[in-house]
Nucleic acid binder design. Structure first.
Lengths: 342, 342
DNA sequence: AAAAACACTGACATCGTTGTCAGGTTACCA
DNA sequence: TGGTAACCTGACAACGATGTCAGTGTTTTT
């Protein structure tokens, strides 16, 4: 094997520019008190030698590692992928790299492994996605390590760390109003499991929107699901088998909405002809389903990006603390029929 | 802010165990020639102090960084997520961490950025996924850096680096035979774009399987698509509008298969009642589609894992060179009708 | 005009680990 | 018994950056 090509070191650059290594360090770290003339000379040398500071050396010497951790429990989901994408882009802009740390809650030693990774790498901070961001053990590990973290859509403990989220209640409210405006007043709702605050907030938005029009949800048209496809099928079967039937179903997420569509089709009901269905999340399948699913889009990529920004904000800066709400969007596709003009 | 808790250093462990730091290093690196008694004493000390070697220091001192790069151009796809998951798990087993490097081919400076990341972090090796693994510029950057890399399902240059793949031709052959065995002889095929060798191989497997039964594909039932959903719709419209129509459609990937199903439904054809449709890839939507899509599953997670293994095999080891083929699977769902008993 | 503050630069130690090498045992063979 | 190998260990110098501090000019203040 040939010797791995080594890049230029800070010494080479210093020599080339005729200054000390320390001055080179000052220049590319943007420290004050470097003469403009010297700065330019050094920058030219850096460019000429194509110098890249060694991250390991910086980490060892300084107090930062320029490494951020993304802790995931389900790395192959589309949601996680989008968070990662946003985080990745922003991290690069900010001169950091992203190390992905998978956590398998079902494994025996996962806390040890997480601790090991964080301490070995001296991560500067950690990003947490749901549902991990509400896992007490994870938070305890991070608190014990005294490492900064930012949560994405956490369920509870708003004071515990900075976080980003969307206004789920408002989004569900908007979706419900959208249905009402199109003449739907008989709306069934498929809930998520009560342990997720999302499930609660989305239902509350639905209920409140109805209430604003002087309506109340029919009790037997509120069915529990668990955010999974099959539970959507089951729930829809229940909704469609009772006395009378709703003209629209609002599922608390897309997977259950797909289940509802399939269940309706199997009963010979066409969507949206006989039944309108809406979801929440804008899953990738939503645009290739038949019919295309009207749903709520979360700005997941931006959430990942903002989480990195918060993480890199100097501690103590008030601007980064607390919750940061990003705008959602209602994505109109083909799964809703218009019963009356808005 | 409180001072970040620092873990024990190798000196602490050495002192605790009553040996030199170098011996501690020897123990946890599994070097030879450490007395059993000493080894145990050191291991006990490591455990007692909960010692984790500092990755930055190791990287700086030794020749390895214990960091692998995963270069992705579309980090939020399910495929990329699964590769990552497999790579992540295996990397952890092998004591490495994974740094994700997004590459946006459309950006101006992407080669510079990639080079910068690799040299700054002194990555031990890099994983490449399609279609990036066939990008000449990426390969040139890596070759110039003289950094080991492993490709996943590359299109060409089999000698250029180790790689993992599945036998796409055999898989398509198997799927075609599956259709033939169920009485389908009038089969339409939706191809991918010719620039992907996957498209070619999958088509060849299809053609060969027909040929083995003494059949030849009908020319106007071979339609070109581009692996995207809409092209599947268009292709199916073409296939279903000519004189006579196939009893089955084999799409070169799932996205186009979904398009075909939707197009068929719009023409009043039920799947699989009036038309069978199969795909390739086992996209997440395949199991929540109506009907569930019969398709080929690639062992993507295992491929990511094996890629890491290959990357960590010492260079020069013959076992790691060349291509490594993993087994695919035919996932039987509900999109194929039986016209005759197999 | 002296003192003080500011602006700029480099020497040197340091971060935590591993590579190199020299040295000390013990075991084996002639 | 002496010599050579194999086995085991630690001192010391890297690795490539940054933090600290001292030192030298230059300006501003007193």
């Amino acid at each position: 094997m040939t010797e791995r090509t080594k890049g230029a070191s800070i010494k080479d650059v210093a020599e080339y520019a005729g200054v000390s290594p320390k001055t080179v360090s000052r220049v590319h770290n943007g420290e004050r008190w470097v003469r403009e003339e010297v700065r330019e000379k050094v920058l030219a040398a850096i460019k000429a030698l194509n110098y890249r500071p060694n991250a390991a050396a910086r980490s060892l010497s300084g107090s930062r590692s320029y490494l951020l951790g993304l802790v995931l429990d389900n790395p192959s989901s589309h949601y996680a992928g989008d968070v990662q994408l946003g985080a990745l882009k922003r991290a690069r802009l900010r001169g950091c790299h992203l190390v992905v740390e998978p956590v398998d809650i079902k494994a025996v030693n996962w806390t040890t492994e997480l601790t090991a990774s964080i301490t070995a790498l001296r991560l500067d901070g950690v990003l947490l996605t749901p549902p991990l961001c509400d896992n007490a053990e994870v938070l305890k590990v991070l608190d014990d390590l005294d490492i900064p973290y930012v949560r994405i859509s956490p369920d509870r403990d708003p004071e515990r760390s900075p976080y980003v989220h969307i206004d789920e209640r408002a989004a569900a409210h908007e979706m419900t109003t959208y249905l009402l405006d199109r003449g739907h007043t008989d709306i069934g709702f498929i809930r998520g499991q009560a342990t997720h605050s999302s499930a609660r907030l989305r239902f509350e938005g639905f209920r409140d929107a109805l209430a604003e029009r002087g309506l109340a949800p029919r009790e037997d048209w509120i069915v529990d699901g668990n955010f999974q496809f099959p539970s959507g099928q089951d729930a829809a079967r229940t909704l469609l088998s009772g006395e009378g039937r709703p003209t629209a179903i609002f599922a608390a997420n897309d997977a259950m909405a797909f289940g509802a569509i399939v269940a309706a089709s199997k009963q010979g009901l066409s969507v949206p002809g006989d039944l309108s269905v809406v979801g929440f999340d804008d899953a990738p399948a939503a645009q290739i389903y038949s019919p295309g699913l009207t749903t709520i889009r979360q700005p997941v990529i931006e959430m990942g990006a903002m989480a990195v920004d918060l993480l890199l904000t100097p501690p103590g800066d008030e601007a980064a603390s607390g919750g940061h709400c990003l705008a959602h969007g209602l994505v109109e596709r083909d799964s809703v029929a218009v019963l009356a003009n808005p």
